[in-house]
Design a protein around this nucleic acid. Structure first.
Lengths: 236, 236
DNA sequence: TCCCATTTTTGATCGAAGTCAAAGACGAGT
DNA sequence: ACTCGTCTTTGACTTCGATCAAAAATGGGA
């Protein structure tokens, strides 16, 4: 496993940032943005790169600019639970704990905006607007986590897969133009570990959804043929 | 189901509050505390009272003073997932959404400190210290939720029950003197819905842990005979 | 103290998802 | 186009926890 980061070239101007409108920095005015820019650096990650590992010191915070990260926790015997996928605009470090509570690695190539913990905290300290923005993102994250607990604890395999597809579609729609096929950059194993299933069950369930005419499996993703039926499965 | 609250007598002074040291208001100085006190009222809840229901307008925030609340989400067909138990010092409203994302009801009798959403938000608005305190609690909540996802997605029934007992013991230790028996005020059904199991599986697992000499089942709780073995089960 | 409703426990059986195994598809590199 | 390694799919079988059913314990009220 690669654990290194490819360091980005140099500091960036935030004003033309692709996630400017919906990332954590959306709450900042021009002056503050410039100030924050001076605390940040861009980091380019190769596919599979581990950005940080569970139980290591959290010396940095990150904002995702491009790509997808998988966030996961491991049990001592190797069982893995993916607790979420981070997309452009997502912030890593909301829990604010001194140690990383989970590991994060890039699914495909990814570009991150990195802040040192200390300077970011200092910047944050006396900016109520920014603090409220952090609260807002943390609240959303908490709601997502609670919804995911229902999925993990109370839904069948078919409902889990359908919920995942609908949820993924909706999240992607927030950050990118939706095309005909829903790209699934993560592996079946990632999906299984996200849904609390095995890879075989995920695969069988995809096949079943395809047999039932709800989806079509294509390379690198699926086509949602019958979104209404998928939504019904994912809600019920 | 009872859905009403018994309204408390009148406003309270916060200085002698039982949860003063570890509730959300721990971040406030004397003046602020007095100001916040004027926005709060105490609410006494009978056992089983629903404090608020999922998908209703969130017009109030609450801080738990005494008792235990169960926080849960329901699926349309009645399946229930308990996403957590709230103890004294816990704050309800961290997600800050306009609608309640889950329901909350009192397990036994409970005493709450209620704030109107509007006045609490106004109070919060320009107090970075207080905002950071809210962030701190939200972060803890998020970490708990992430840990619970691992439990729901990747642990066996026995591990789930052991984790629950250890986690409950540790949470109680934060707010009350630990006695010989660990009180379990919630029903087996509550425990089952918290762990993503059925009531029968929870009961059988308790019996098995007792047969194995790890716990002793007593009325209203359990005795942890072999905490080390329980911790091993809950970690592994 | 005795009832009766509710909760908990136990037993028997079932089934959804896991496990084990092998075949098939895909893609990067030659 | 071919090869090798990885990922995905499919099949056969097993198992853990769910379901269905009933007995036992608990507790509040007459």
């Amino acid at each position: 496993m690669k654990v290194s980061l490819l360091e980005g070239s140099h500091r960036q101007t935030c004003t033309d940032c692709a996630v400017r409108g919906f990332a954590i920095c959306a709450a900042l005015d021009k002056t503050e943005l410039w100030e924050l820019a001076n605390l940040s650096r861009h980091v380019q990650c190769e596919p599979g790169t581990t950005v940080f590992a569970q139980a290591t010191m959290a010396t940095s915070f990150f904002s995702v600019l491009e790509g997808v990260l998988r966030l996961y926790k491991l049990l001592p015997d190797g069982r893995r639970q993916i607790i979420g996928f981070a997309l452009p605009g997502d912030f890593l470090g909301l829990a604010g704990s001194a140690q990383h509570e989970f590991s994060a690695d890039a699914v495909g190539a990814a570009l991150l905006c990195q802040f040192s913990r200390a300077s970011f905290s200092r910047f944050t300290e006396n900016r109520p607007r920014f603090l409220r923005r952090i609260n807002e993102l943390a609240g959303r994250e908490l709601i997502r986590a609670q919804e995911h607990m229902v999925l993990l604890g109370r839904r069948s395999a078919e409902e889990k897969v359908a919920s995942f597809l609908i949820g993924w579609r909706d999240r992607l729609a927030e950050v990118a133009r939706a095309g005909d096929v829903l790209p699934l950059p993560m592996s079946r194993l990632d999906i299984a570990d996200y849904l609390g299933l095995t890879i075989e069950t995920v695969s069988r369930t995809f096949t079943k959804l395809e047999r039932d005419g709800i989806i079509r499996i294509v390379t690198g993703g699926i086509s949602l043929l019958d979104a209404a039926r998928a939504e019904a499965l994912s809600a019920a």
